[in-house]
Write a protein that binds this DNA or RNA. Structure first.
Lengths: 246, 246
DNA sequence: AGATCTTGGATCGCATGCATAATCGAATGC
DNA sequence: GCATTCGATTATGCATGCGATCCAAGATCT
C-alpha cells in the first residue's frame, strides 16, 4: 500500500513537472546565454568564444559547446564555418519578416486563449494588464518592458498550446534585442495600452476571432508594409541603393 | 594573380552560399537523424542511444551528443531526465495544437507568397501542383506525399521569408510521422487537389488575403474543433475517461 | 509471500588531450 | 612602399577516460 502510494506520487510528480528539469551544466549555460541575449548583455553579431565562455561560467568547453549547439539549432546563434559562432543578427528585412511570424503566432495564441482560458488565468491576465498601465502611468520604460512581456506570456500560457508556446518563446528571444529598441521609442508605450485593453476584453468574453484579429493588428502594425517595400527593392534592380545589411 | 583569383572565388562562394555549409560530423549526424525521422525510419518515442548511434555512424560519442542537443533544442527530441533522449512524441491534443500552429504559419506563407512570388517561382508552383494531380490520377500515395511536400515548400520559398521557412521546416519534421498517416487516409488525397487549386489561383493573381484564408482552411480543416474538445475534456473532471497519453 | 534494501551493470555528463584548420603578424621580394 | 608569402599562435572539432547517477535484479527481513 505504501509502495503503491509512493509510485503514484512519483507519477504525479512527473506528470506535474511535465518534463523533468534539466540540471545539466549545458542546460545552465544555454539558459544563461539566452537570458543574457534577452536582457541585452550580449548583442547580435557578437562572437561567442568557447574558451572565454567556459572560463566565465567555470566549466569545461564541452558543456559550453553543447549549449552553443542548442542555440544554433534554435536559430539564436549562427555558425560561420570554422570561425566559431555569433549571436544571430537580422537584416532589416529579416527582422520585419520575423515580426510578421510573431504576429501570426501571437494572434493564434490570443485566439486560442479566448477559447481555453481558465478562471485563474483570467485574473493573471488582468493583473498583468494593470501592471502595464501602472508602468505607463509612472513613465517607467523598464517596468513596462517586463510587464508587457508577462502580459504576452500570460496569453501564450492561456492558449494551453505547448507547441505554440515553444515557438513563441524561441522567436521572442531572437527578436528581443530589436523589440527592446522599439519599445523604447517615444509614443509606442502609451499607444499599446488601448490595444492591450481591446485584446484583453475580447479574450475575457471568449471572442476568439476578435482576439486574434486585434492581436495581429497590435503586433504587426508597423511590419507588413515596410517589409513588402524592402523585398520589392531587393528583388528589383534597385539593389545597391541601400547599404549592405549583414 | 592566381592567388588573388582564388581568394576572390572563395569569397564569392561564401557570399553566395550565405552560410558556409556545415561539414562537421555533428551536422552530418543531425541531418541524418532528421532525415530518418522524416522518412519514418525512426519513430516517435524511440529511444536514442548515444553509443549505438556513434557505432552506427562510425563516429565518437561527442558529435552524436552535439547532434542530439540540436534535435532537442529544435523540439525533435525530448529528454527524459538522465535516462537519455527519445524522439519527440505527441499526444493527440499536442498533435492537433501543432497542426493549428502549422496552419497559421502556412497561411502566412501563402499570403506573403501571393505578394512576393517571382516569375520563376510561379512556374515551379504550377509544376508541383501538376505533379500532385498526376500522383492522384495514378493513385500513387508515395508520389503524392512527396509532391505535396514540394508544393508546400515551394509556397514557403515564394514567401521570401527566411524565418518563416525555418519555423515551417522545424514543425514539418516534428509532425511528419503523423502527417504521413493522415495523408494515407482514403479520400484525403483527392480532396486536397481542389483546395490546392484554389490556393494556387489566389497566389498567382496576387490575392494575399484569399490565399492565406484558403491555406488556413486547407491545413486546419480537421484540427480546430477536435483540439478544443480534447482540451475541454482534459481540463474538466472528465479526466480519466481516456487512456494516458504519455 | 511481499516489500525493502543492496549490489551490479550500464549509460550519461563532463573534463582533458590531440589534431586540424584559420587567422594574424612579420619578413621578404618586387 | 606595397603586396605576398610563410610561419606561429589560437581556436575549433573530435576522441577518449573517469566519475556519478540511474535502472534492474537478487537477497534479506518482516
Amino acid at each position: 500500500m505504501s509502495h503503491r502510494t509512493a509510485q503514484r506520487a512519483r507519477r504525479l510528480d512527473l506528470s506535474e513537472a511535465g518534463i523533468p528539469e534539466d540540471t545539466s551544466l549545458a542546460g545552465d549555460v544555454a539558459r544563461r546565454l539566452e537570458e543574457d541575449i534577452l536582457r541585452g548583455a550580449i548583442r547580435p553579431g557578437q562572437r561567442l568564444d568557447e574558451r572565454e565562455l567556459s572560463e566565465r561560467y567555470g566549466v569545461s568547453r564541452t558543456p559550453v559547446r553543447e549549449a552553443l549547439q542548442r542555440l544554433s539549432a534554435s536559430g539564436l546563434a549562427s555558425a560561420r564555418g570554422r570561425q566559431g559562432l555569433q549571436v544571430a543578427q537580422f537584416s532589416v528585412a529579416d527582422l520585419l519578416d520575423a515580426l510578421s511570424v510573431v504576429a501570426s503566432l501571437e494572434a493564434l495564441a490570443a485566439s486560442q486563449a479566448a477559447r481555453r482560458i481558465t478562471q485563474e488565468q483570467r485574473a493573471v491576465l488582468e493583473a498583468e494588464h494593470a501592471a502595464c498601465g501602472a508602468a505607463i502611468a509612472a513613465g517607467d520604460y523598464d517596468a513596462f518592458y517586463d510587464a508587457n512581456i508577462r502580459f504576452h506570456d500570460a496569453i501564450a500560457a492561456a492558449s494551453h498550446n505547448r507547441v505554440l508556446q515553444d515557438e513563441l518563446r524561441r522567436l521572442s528571444v531572437k527578436t528581443a534585442p530589436y523589440r527592446r529598441a522599439i519599445t523604447f521609442q517615444p509614443g509606442r508605450m502609451p499607444q499599446s495600452q488601448p490595444e492591450h485593453a481591446a485584446i484583453l476584453a475580447a479574450i475575457l468574453r471568449n471572442d476568439a476571432a476578435v482576439a486574434g484579429e486585434r492581436m495581429a493588428h497590435h503586433v504587426s502594425l508597423l511590419s507588413e508594409g515596410i517589409a513588402d517595400f524592402l523585398h520589392f527593392i531587393r528583388s528589383s534592380d534597385h539593389a545597391g541603393l541601400f547599404k549592405d545589411e549583414t
